[in-house]
Nucleic acid binder design. Structure first.
Ligand SMILES: [Mn+2]
Ligand SMILES: [Mn+2]
Ligand SMILES: [Zn+2]
Ligand SMILES: [Zn+2]
Lengths: 158, 158
DNA sequence: ACCTTATAGATAATTATTATCAATAACAAA
DNA sequence: TTTGTTATTGATAATAATTATCTATAAGGT
């Protein structure tokens, strides 16, 4: 939570990077958000505090965090990437193909499996990604009530 | 192998689509290839037989197969998508971050696990994707021999 | 052989991301 | 506190994979 922000700040400083107000705001948003936001969504959040902020600045900060290994990027074909600043370690995701919500299931099932598979093929693993695409519970509700193609019931939190 | 091509042809016909020589060539390449080629790579292969073929045609055929559920697309951030026309069902992949080779590990480990996880969260799964990124055996060899950043020893097969 | 229309080929448009560059501000040192 | 160096900002252009557009052609049914 607040601890995570300190980790990011520390990592930035350690490598001789500067800590600007815009950058600080971006770090705070990424450390706090639990909804895997896009760069665009982070950008909108930052603008609330610093209206002059550029989209390029958000991109550059995210790139910096990627290089530091402090953010996890989820790339998709076509649409923009989603980011997990809370937990930069590779982990499974539940991705709703209707409303776009991305959940972090807490599980220890995959702890050994990936390594096991790679060993079998002499493959030296450095990263992995496990995604389940489907319909989230909220969207299943919305589907049974109305026929509207409008997604989920509650607002999507980033 | 040859069976797979027949499945694709049949699927195309069933839905009232036409079977042009270019399209047939593309189907053959996708059915035969075991290396998860890009659209660009398929395009080059087709041009060997039909030099007048357009890149757009390859894209359109791949899109068609996606709609029919007969090809698996692996999207990445930045670089172009890779396609598995052999096995359209979602399955794990071993992806070398050095030479780009993508392997299909044969395993039955994941058969129940995904479903299990999604049930736990009331998540209605319709698709999934599991990727392991790392260094393939060939690239590990190349690394220990020379310092060249040039990838793998043998040519990459698509 | 003929008709209808899906498809091919060429090319423009789209869009997320990256590169460029002058002005500014972080921050270390004096 | 002032100063100097230079990383960073913001604005915008460039990039590149994929998609859309449009006319000519040919697939496949009659
Ligand atoms: Mn996550
Ligand atoms: Mn595969
Ligand atoms: Zn949903
Ligand atoms: Zn390799």
């Amino acid at each position: 939570m607040e601890d995570r922000l300190q980790t990011l700040v520390q990592k930035i400083r350690q490598h001789g990077h500067r800590l600007t107000p815009q950058r600080m705001a971006i770090l705070r948003i990424l450390a706090d958000s639990t909804g895997h936001p896009t760069v665009e969504q982070v950008y909108e959040q930052v603008q609330a505090q610093f209206p002059m902020t550029s989209l390029a600045t958000v991109y550059k900060t995210v790139t910096l965090l990627k290089e530091e290994g402090e953010i996890l990027e989820l790339s998709f074909g076509g649409e923009s990437s989603r980011y997990d600043g809370h937990n930069p370690q590779p982990h499974p995701h539940l991705i709703c193909i209707r409303c776009g919500t991305i959940l972090d299931p807490d599980l220890a099932l995959f702890n050994d499996l990936p390594r096991e598979i790679c060993d079998k093929y002499g493959f030296q693993m450095v990263n992995h990604r496990v995604d389940f695409f489907g319909i989230c519970p909220a969207c299943q509700q919305a589907q049974s009530v109305s026929t509207t193609s409008t997604p989920q019931g509650k607002e999507q939190e980033f």
